[in-house]
Design a protein around this nucleic acid. Structure first.
Length: 772
DNA sequence: GCTTCTACCGTTTTT
DNA sequence: CGGTAGAAGC
């Protein structure tokens, strides 16, 4: 596409922002104003002007955004786009650090620890320091370490700063400094970095090594940053250093959409950008192309009172649109039913595909009643941005072997698989080696490799097992340089015994896990094939480079079946997306706005921005829902409508269509419980599957317990009839000689794929079995 | 070593 | 209530 054509596709504001290529530029892009378009066209324009793609650094907020932008640029100007430095802050600077980390003493193949790894490491540190107090919780510690690293305070500086030690003493966490130091050391020894380190060490490198700074300043002639309102101090400092020389930095963002303060994002970065760079050219994109006037105006009202913001006026030439319906429900499950019902009706009446609906919520925990309701009337849905494929247990197990092969010092990977599958290296053995490692200031792997040099008091049998393991890992490492990722991965998968272990597990979950591992290997094959003509890039090492940085949306999104589904997600996850129909659920005080924001500090601005983001995801219609009671910790609590509902002028809202049928006092709504577990009148209800409408086995719940799966369970597991239970979801009938002697059957419900596989068993009366 | 029982805690939001 | 860790039980 020629440059002229590119520029002709833009409106006047957008075009001006694209054409101003040099010097500091700030583009304030309101929601739905074509921000991505401006960024992509700007890059295309730069390339057309003859700027080398290698000289452009473009930073996005998610991998997905980077990928999509790259595709669009490719379609505009062709394959040159491949050479752009484009990605998230984390992945881009991980790439940079792989080249340069040797200067900081890290191996080029350093491992990236994800949150789980980091917590695991902290946990072992706490244990070793005998601090197993409940005051030192891994996640809290990690949170603090993270925010300190974001402020670029090293462990050394931390320990020597009386301000911090005083603060820790007050907080009764006097060992925190020591923990931070040990954590840092252990990461270093393990050849690993956590998420924050990727930014931290990039900063250190640029700060302390002038030749590095110069190199990258000269390399990145043009810097573009998307979602600038959500950058943190560490990211700010990287940008400041890199842009100092050429000052060609273009930041795009919307202060009204800054919603990540909790992880260190600093809205001041965007508010003060003009002070940072005195001759900044500022462009404002104020025309919204996405939503109806009603939605745009209502959204404007939501943030109108915020103190921290840049002046702008978002407007739209789109149609007026419907008023925003506000629906009240009695309970969270009714709220789900109402939403499901509306989706069903709209799909039927207007033939709207499922994918045009999104249900947004403030906290992940809210998804469950929504899911139940959707499942009940057979609406397909998908939770967007959930657990990454690469964070599943079985996948992490496999990856741990890969990681060990690449970097045997990786302690978390080692601990994860040293006794999986079982090879008789138990906790006590590992603990002994860990102590020896700490005493001698080496890694556990070093201890294992040089076992005879250490007095560990181990049995000969254990020593042999350890040596076997060492040789196993070494045999894996040996394969890496000469084979591609798939060959190496396949070799490790079978050599480690994982495949065999999983193959023996014939439970539905086990089969599912096996399929996931297969999927991983398929992924490796694709990866190897894609990089075939350049064998150096087809290695497992290369595949593993930024696996830890991938999120749930970076894998299976091309799957056809996955496409036409209603999407459920947190509002945070919805940033950057848009849908025709959006439901914003749980608009209740102390939920949205969250309790934290209400009581902790009277700081509701970010919550309002969050609401703003939620509203502006909608093109045609945004529907607000709330309920008067909600389950929390098992018991029902009553809720007040959110203050946000009052902050929108009534002219934009449509309260008439409230679900509240003739109002009933709350007491009436309590579902009467039968006095005992049996059916007193002897006529049990017939349950029909909402999916198939088939008559299900009518049941009467007698008792339910949770349990880990044991061999007996596996033995009796036979796929029987499908049963759905209001409370536990779906499950399969387990038969043990058909029926228990007392006329009850065992029904098994999955409670999900978590660390510990727990199944829920309910013993149920079989009253009628219409399947026969 | 493996299973089951018991006590405890928790809800923001995530690259 | 549901998930988890660690103790108790075999």
């Amino acid at each position: 596409m020629s440059d002229r054509d590119i520029l002709d596709e833009l409106n006047r504001e957008q075009r001006a922002a694209v054409e101003c290529t040099d010097g500091p530029v700030m583009i304030i892009a309101g929601a739905g104003s074509g921000k991505t378009r401006v960024l992509t066209y700007r890059i295309a324009h730069l390339l057309n002007k003859g700027v080398d793609a290698f000289g452009i650094l473009a930073l996005t907020f998610t991998n997905k955004a980077a990928r999509e932008m790259k595709e669009r640029i490719t379609s505009l100007v062709g394959g040159e786009a491949r050479n752009l430095w484009m990605g998230t802050f984390h992945s881009t600077f991980a790439r940079l650090l792989r080249r340069e980390a040797y200067r900081l003493g890290f191996p080029p193949d350093f491992t990236i620890y994800d949150t789980e790894d980091s917590k695991g490491l902290l946990k072992s540190i706490i244990k070793e320091m005998n601090l197993n107090d409940s005051t030192y919780k891994p996640s809290a510690l990690l949170g603090r370490i993270s925010s300190i690293k974001t402020m670029l305070v090293s462990s050394k500086e931390y320990i020597n700063d009386p301000h911090y030690s005083g603060e820790d003493r007050r907080m009764r966490r006097e060992h925190f400094g020591q923990i931070y130091e040990t954590y840092t050391k252990r990461l270093f020894k393990s050849g690993a970095m956590d998420f924050d380190d990727l930014l931290f060490f990039t900063n250190i490198l640029l700060r302390d090594q002038p030749d590095m700074l110069l190199k990258y300043q000269n390399m990145f002639r043009y810097i573009l940053v998307d979602e600038y309102q959500d950058t943190n101090f560490s990211q700010f400092m990287i940008l400041r250093q890199l842009a100092a020389r050429h000052q060609n930095i273009c930041v795009v963002g919307d202060d009204a959409q800054s919603i990540y303060a909790f992880r260190g994002a600093n809205i001041q970065n965007i508010l003060n950008f003009q002070k940072q760079y005195s001759d900044t050219a500022v462009f404002k994109l104020e025309q919204n192309y996405r939503s109806t006037q009603t939605i745009v105006n209502a959204a404007n009202q939501v943030i109108a009172k915020n103190r921290d913001q840049l002046a702008k006026k978002i407007w739209t030439a789109n149609e007026q649109g419907d008023k925003i319906p506000v629906l009240r429900a009695f309970t969270d499950s009714e709220e789900g039913r109402v939403i499901a019902q509306l989706i069903y009706e709209r799909r039927m009446q207007k033939n709207v595909p499922y994918r045009e609906f999104a249900i947004l919520y403030r906290t992940n925990a809210q998804s469950r009643p929504l899911e139940e309701a959707l499942r009940k009337i057979g609406i397909p849905y998908r939770i967007y941005g959930g657990l990454s494929f690469y964070q599943r247990r079985e996948i992490k197990d496999m990856l741990a072997y890969f990681r060990l092969a690449i970097n045997p010092n990786d302690e978390e990977a080692l601990r994860r698989v040293i006794n999986y599958p079982k090879r008789e290296i138990g906790d006590t053995t590992v603990d002994k080696m860990a102590v020896a490692a700490a005493d001698n200031d080496v890694t556990i792997w070093t201890v294992m490799e040089n076992l005879p040099d250490f007095e560990l008091g181990l049995q000969n049998r254990s020593r042999e097992k350890i040596m076997d393991f060492v040789n196993l890992i070494k045999s894996f490492s040996a394969v890496l340089p000469t084979h591609n990722a798939f060959q190496a991965g396949d070799f490790i998968a079978s050599g480690s015994g994982i495949i065999k272990e999983m193959f023996l597990d014939r439970t539905p979950e086990g089969i599912n896990r096996m399929e996931n591992v297969q999927e991983l290997l398929n992924g490796l094959r694709d990866f190897s094939l894609k990089a075939e003509n350049d064998p150096a890039t087809a290695t497992l090492n290369h595949f593993m480079e930024d696996i830890a940085l991938l999120t749930g949306e970076d894998v299976n999104e091309t799957d056809e079946n996955e496409k036409d589904k209603v999407l459920l997600m947190t509002i945070h996850a919805a940033k950057g997306l848009e849908f025709n129909y959006v439901f914003i659920s749980g608009l209740e005080e102390n939920l949205f706005p969250s309790q934290m924001a209400v009581i902790d500090r009277e700081d509701l601005e970010e919550e309002r921005r969050l609401f703003y983001v939620a509203l502006t995801r909608a093109r045609k219609n945004a529907t607000l829902t709330y309920s008067m009671s909600r389950y929390r910790y098992g018991s029902s609590v009553s809720c007040e409508p959110s203050r946000f509902l009052e902050e929108i002028p009534a002219e934009f809202l449509d309260n008439a269509s409230s679900t509240a049928e003739p109002y009933q006092p709350r007491e009436m709504q309590r579902i009467p419980r039968p006095p005992n577990t049996g059916y007193s009148n002897g006529t049990p209800p017939v349950i029909r599957s909402p999916l198939t409408n088939k008559k299900l086995i009518s049941v009467n719940k007698v008792s339910a317990t949770q349990s880990t799966v044991n061999n007996r369970h596996l033995e009796i597991l036979r796929a029987g009839m499908f049963v759905e239970h209001e409370r536990f979801g779906r499950g399969e009938v387990l038969k043990m000689d058909g029926i228990y002697p007392d006329g009850k059957a065992l029904i098994l419900f999955e409670t999900g794929e978590k660390k510990q596989l727990l199944l829920r068993f309910a013993r149920l009366n079989i009253v009628e079995d219409s399947s026969k």
